[in-house]
């Protein structure tokens, strides 16, 4: 079982993730072309300005207004992406499989990052349940997406600390990670793929066409 999820299934997940992402971005670009104005409205300068103001914490007034949310969301997303990517264990697996590797972080640090992701997810869950606006627009898909996102981290944490049934936990962890990879292109987790495009389009339209700013 372990060999299957770690081997062929992982490969399939990666292929679906990359191919799916490329497909979805291509589909989006095709749609953008059909929208006829989108590419004419794009501007590198205003795209960059928008990204600078929205990718650096507290670099726009909305983030400054919501300090807790800003801290949580940045910590959550940074740890979510960086943690798994720079975890020694993951890199070793990739090296074994495809003979490529890169620099890694200390395991303790990644462990703490995992905690941050889990805590962030808890925060988002709490918001979904308590904030009337968010609650009103939340349906099962939102909980499922949150679960898909956080499950690899919870299982990874449990497995790493060998809290119980290490082998089973490891398999579940790998499976959870694979589900997440597969889900990214085809669910609203694709905001990971589309963020740069929606952000830069809005920035470009605001700057180039409307002579204003989007931050």
């Amino acid at each position: 079982m372990y060999e299957f999820v770690r081997g062929p299934l992982a490969l399939i997940a990666f292929i679906i993730f990359f191919a799916g992402s490329i497909y979805r971005i291509a589909y989006m670009l095709k749609g953008a072309k059909k929208d006829k104005i989108v590419f004419s409205h794009m501007s590198w300068k205003h795209s960059l300005a928008s990204l600078v103001h929205w990718l650096i914490p507290f670099n726009n007034q909305y983030m400054r207004r919501r300090p807790i949310f800003t801290v949580v969301t940045f910590a959550f997303h940074i740890c979510l992406v960086i943690g798994p990517l720079l975890l020694l264990g993951h890199v070793m697996l990739i090296q074994e499989s495809w003979n490529i590797s890169w620099w890694t972080l200390s395991e303790t640090l990644v462990d703490w990052m995992t905690v941050v992701v889990i805590a962030g997810a808890a925060f988002f869950l709490y918001r979904r349940l308590s904030d009337p606006v968010v609650k009103n627009v939340t349906d099962s898909s939102d909980y499922i997406l949150l679960a898909i996102t956080v499950l690899p981290f919870i299982t990874g944490f449990v497995a790493y600390h060998q809290l119980f049934a290490y082998k089973t936990m490891l398999i579940i962890h790998i499976l959870a990670g694979e589900i997440m990879l597969i889900a990214i292109p085809f669910t609203r987790l694709s905001h990971m793929l589309f963020f740069a495009f929606t952000r830069t389009y809005y920035g470009s339209e605001s700057g180039l066409v409307r002579h204003s700013k989007d931050w």
Binding site: K34, V134, V137, R188, H191
Partner: peptide, 26 residues
């Protein structure tokens, strides 16, 4: 009559509700 923008917006919105505070009606 719609294309890339609407599709992308629908597939990107994570239902976070941060837009609420912007609205004078709300």
């Amino acid at each position: 009559e719609t294309a890339g923008r609407l599709w992308t917006y629908l597939n990107t919105c994570i239902h976070c509700g941060l837009c609420a505070e912007a609205c004078q009606w709300y």
